[in-house]
Nucleic acid binder design. Structure first.
Length: 422
RNA sequence: GGAGAAAUGGCAGAGCGGUUGAAUGCACCAGUCUUGAAAACUGGCAUACCGAGAGGUAUCGGGGGUUCGAAUCCCUCUUUCUCCGCCA
């Protein structure tokens, strides 16, 4: 959520920047500014009436103490009338505030200057490409065939027990999951991220804080009975640890990491790239989160990119980094880099990580602030990234490392798996 | 799940219808003193919104109500604690 004061001060620039998202926000920004000035006017009127009512109430108190009941009763009548009209103003103010919030909630974040304009993923910019795409002297098999032959992952069993998109990992397939989780967590810890184990169900306020609610509620599983949501990413509980908090300047940077399963309904995505591990309702991910001083957040973003790169290089996977164009940029993000790993058998790039700077967009919803050097509270910046999401990494390892006599486990993982080959 | 008690500033803790945005202590910050520090003393020390400012408004777990006036009374929700039950 953008701050109204920010919109007011940077109106033209914001409208221009939203063109990167292919959005014309002129009208909604004008509406926001009009509503906000209405809000101010109404509040001024209401405050004036309340001030008068308050001073009358005080007078009445004094009169009663003096035993001057007659005069006090006259004042009571006056105060009663003031109460009625201020209640009307209060209603009006609430209506305005609801409308204003509605508009602000539906306005996405302002893309950074370097974000390219564009409509869809086709216009994302490839920043760099690393590693070698493997070649085979046999026809490489896609991971869904490999996992079946080797009995590593059982999709049908998942369908029976839960439904599509909820696989069982078995034997060495399960071990690889655990190995990757531990490897990712160890690397994050080395990079200065403190590990947390979070709740997997969160309340509505948390969903609003990080921007999943009120708009994308169709993407989250909802436990109606208890008004809780299953987390779509550890970003939600980790970032919400800092909701309603005022930090000190020397608390920065705050770095947390956490492994969680992630639950996504993936409503409306049927039929597209959903085979095997490519798209699941439940998957595992290690997430890294930073709370940063506004002046340092882009630097922090660079650090997170380096960290993810390090993981992919240690796993020896060919990957590329994309700078997302405005049209493909997430609702809450000001700038996002995607990491894609090459899948040899599917002959395509699979997204395995998304690293974003949300600037103050989430902080404003979260009321996550810090006292700046002048002693004033200012919104902090939030960032997060996947480091990494498991399923497509597993897919790429299986597919890229297959040989005629088995799948070779990346060297770095062998101390975690305890085996070198499947 | 049942019965009871409670929720006040960074923390502890008063207040239980009327100059209470809130005593007091601790913590913290600044000043005096000191070569420096400690101690002592003096002052400051919540958040948001409105206002150029003076200042105003709201907030004592959340929401609603009674009243001219609510931290204080009522309703409701949430959370915590104690006891009982259940349970990895």
């Amino acid at each position: 959520m953008l701050a109204v004061s920010y919109i007011e001060e940077n109106k033209e620039e914001i409208i221009k920047r939203f063109q990167k998202r292919q959005l014309d926000v002129t009208e909604s920004i004008n509406n926001i500014l009009t509503l906000d000035s209405e809000r101010k006017n109404t509040q001024q009127l209401m405050d004036a009436e309340l001030a008068e009512a308050n001073s009358i109430a005080k007078e009445i108190g004094i009169l009663f103490k003096k035993g001057n009941g007659k005069e006090a009763n006259e004042l009571k009548e006056k105060a009663g009338k003031l109460k009625e009209s201020s209640a009307e103003l209060k209603n009006k103010l609430q209506t305005i505030e609801v409308k204003l919030k509605e508009l602000l909630f539906h306005l996405p974040n302002v893309p950074q200057e370097k974000v390219p304009q564009g409509n869809s993923e086709l216009e994302n910019i490839e920043i760099s490409k690393h590693g070698n795409i493997p070649t085979f002297n046999f026809a490489p098999k896609p991971h869904w065939d490999l996992v079946k032959e080797l009995d590593l992952i059982d999709f049908e069993l998942g369908v029976k027990v839960s439904g599509a998109g909820f696989p069982f990992y078995k034997g060495k397939g399960a071990k690889i999951q655990r190995a990757l989780i531990n490897f990712f967590l160890d690397e994050a810890e080395k990079a200065g991220y403190e590990e947390v184990i979070t709740p997997l169900l969160v309340n509505e306020a948390s969903g609003i804080g990080t921007g999943q609610l009120p708009d994308k509620d169709a993407q989250m599983y909802h436990v109606n009975e208890d008004e809780l949501y299953l987390i779509p990413t550890a970003e939600v509980p980790i970032t919400n640890m800092y909701r309603d908090i005022i930090l000190k300047e020397d608390d920065f940077p705050i770095k947390n990491c956490g492994y969680t399963p992630c639950f996504r309904r993936e409503a409306g995505s049927y039929g597209k790239d959903v085979r095997g591990l490519n798209r699941l309702h439940q998957f595992d991910k290690v997430e890294i989160v930073q709370i940063s001083h506004p002046s340092k957040s882009n630097e922090a973003l660079e650090g997170m990119i380096k960290h993810v790169q390090g993981l992919l290089e240690k796993l020896n996977l060919p990957y590329r980094i994309l700078l997302l164009c405005g049209g493909d940029l997430g609702f809450a993000s000001a700038i996002t880099y995607d990491f894609e790993v090459y899948s040899a058998a599917q002959e395509k790039w699979l997204e395995v990580s998304s690293v974003s700077n949300f600037e103050s967009f989430q902080s404003n919803r979260l009321k996550l602030r810090f006292k700046n050097s002048e002693g004033k509270s200012e919104l902090a910046h939030t960032l997060n990234g996947s480091a990494l999401a498991l399923p497509r990494i597993v897919a790429a390892i299986l597919e890229n490392n297959q040989t005629e006599n088995g799948i070779v486990i990346p060297e770095i993982l062998r101390t975690y798996t305890g085996f070198e080959k499947i």
